[in-house]
Design a protein around this nucleic acid. Sequence first.
RNA 1: GCCUGGGUAGCUCAGUCGGUAGAGCAACGCAUUCGUAAUGCGUAGGUCAGGAGUUCGAAUCUCCUCCCAGGCUCCA
Length: 660
Amino acid sequence: MSDLDVQLPDGSHRTLAQGSTALDLAAAIGARLAKDALAAEVNSQLTDLSAPLPDGATVAIITPASEKGREVLRHSTAHVLAQAVTRLWPGAHYAIGPAIRDGFYYDFSLPGGARFSDDDLARIEDEMRKIVGENQPFTRSEHSFEDGLELFKDQPFKVEIINAVRSGASEEDLAEVANSSVVSTYSNTPEFRDLCRGPHVPSTARLGFFKLMRVAGAYWRGDEKRPQLQRIYGTAWESKDALAAHLTQLEEAEKRDHRRLGQELDLFSFPSELGPGLAVFHPKGGTIRRVMEDYSRSRHVAGGYEFVNSPHITKSELFETSGHLEWFADSMYPAMELDDGQNYYLKPMNCPFHVLIFKSRQRSYRELPLRMFEFGTVYRYEKSGAVHGLTRVRGMTQDDAHIFCTREQMSDELTSLLNFVLDLLRDFGLNDFYLELSTRPEGKAVGSDEEWSEAESTLATVAGSVGLELVLDEGGGAFYGPKISVQARDAIGRTHQLSTIQLDFQTPQRFEASYVAADNARHRPIMIHRALFGSVERFMAILIEHYAGNMPTWMSPEQVRVLGVRDDHDDYANEVVAALRLDGVRVQTEAANEPLGARIRRAKMEKIPYILVVGDDDVASGTLGINARGSNHPERGVTFGQFRSRLLDEIASHGSPEAL
RNA sequence: GCCUGGGUAGCUCAGUCGGUAGAGCAACGCAUUCGUAAUGCGUAGGUCAGGAGUUCGAAUCUCCUCCCAGGCUCCA
């Protein structure tokens, strides 16, 4: 019998007996690798260890402590979850159970419409540990569609998937079976079989470092109109330490949650008297907001924007013309009907107002590009389950601008705009970006194919010009045009969609906006919608979490607090305060009614960048003691002049005492 | 909007079997005058989210409403 030759990831070759499996290969490389191996990647395709290797294949052994290894063990853990649920709820229907970021989920429909409660999670987890202890092998088998339908005749979701694959498979469904002509399944014991492409770990004994996190409702196939299933989320890792590290990281993320910090730092609140998604900003949160807005304004002045304002309510006519009432009436606050029968709406968007400003008189091509900016407060009736802290609210302020330009100007204008956006975001301390291009939404778009493809290709070219990674978001555009969005990674690696830039050929048409060009004829302008923060509220929330509440000095509500050691130092402390205020520094003092340690602790918990302590030495020689945020080593005997220039430099350069 | 879980003092939370409300922090008062993350003593603070029901009696059990959290759906 001839041997077979395989190539390893490092380029080296191995010769194995015909019929050898990936597990045989792992054993040939080393006993340790054979013990760790979970699955294999053969010619870039994940497979089971037990699958025979084809001659000439490129093979990588997948071990637990890798992204692919975790994906396999998470997927296998999802199967064990389903098996445990079918043990505890005989007759339960199981739908799909993929691996996801950090874990897995599985969707179920329980007999008699029963629901999981939080208490059930512990029971299910116990049952899962039993299955792990039973060391059940995952066994793959392949069947015809007819046999597959017979095997799963009691599992309606599986039947639906098999039938969907048979009649022209979607990508999503293909992921559940071997390919478009063969149904693959995995069974542990005869007791449990699942439809699955695999691969899986060799045995349930290879699992164990998991935790069920929560139960949630989820619509079958993500469709609101289809039955709601019971979803269980879990996390799974390759080792006890990795699981513990993940749980610790979740706790860390919770500590920087902007809703928690908003409460602890007295920044904002959501009084229940106002209703869901409606925030009030307290003085400290108001200061952060004002600094953000002031800085944005100054950059927009420099960027050639003009400032406009528009009212919060309007007759329905405006949003009938714009098309918003047609598309988004459900998420607008209901109309206010006036005595004369006229309907007024709270505005969910600023753009139609800016079009009216454009239309208020004849425009010349010499005025273009015309850039109108407004901090425009809009109201959207978000579904009750959608509101979330400051990131999804019902009343918010957009840093909204609309640029009117010619088709010829469009490309240059977009390029400089994208650079303007990225510069501004960097000034707020975000540095790690990628771009997303959202294209025409099927069945929910207006305008001709030609306009859409021109708009999309223009945006793609511009996005490509700034040298950032570009991801395609098929069908994610607005009804009137495609968009580029800037995605930013924060300090703990989460990504947030920030700025959006949208191209719009439709609105100028709907409003019949025009300008007089050099040829003395009227032409239709192009409109570019753009928001950099998105909303001031949401951007503030992202910054609070990015900095864990330790705002850079220029944004800190209180930048300096001066503390006298005893109350006979308070006069000197007040002199320091008065001197710093001349430079516009936000500085306060706290009288020496309490021990110094208590006052320092309070200032530290308020995350004030600089605490200045002044005592006998300082009064005598005109110096300061500096206790900087993030430091446990106070500096003594610093002159006022030294501290002043250091502080002012740091504010001007948007720095932090921690030197982030 | 849907699913699961929650709502007790300004904040964080305890409250047993249904017997009418507790702590720490914060606030306020008095004393304390202190060199880098909690000085001591005292005072005040509650329609137990709101409403209805069961009960001799409800923070506790039941129902409805509001709000919050985690998901699903949605996000111009």
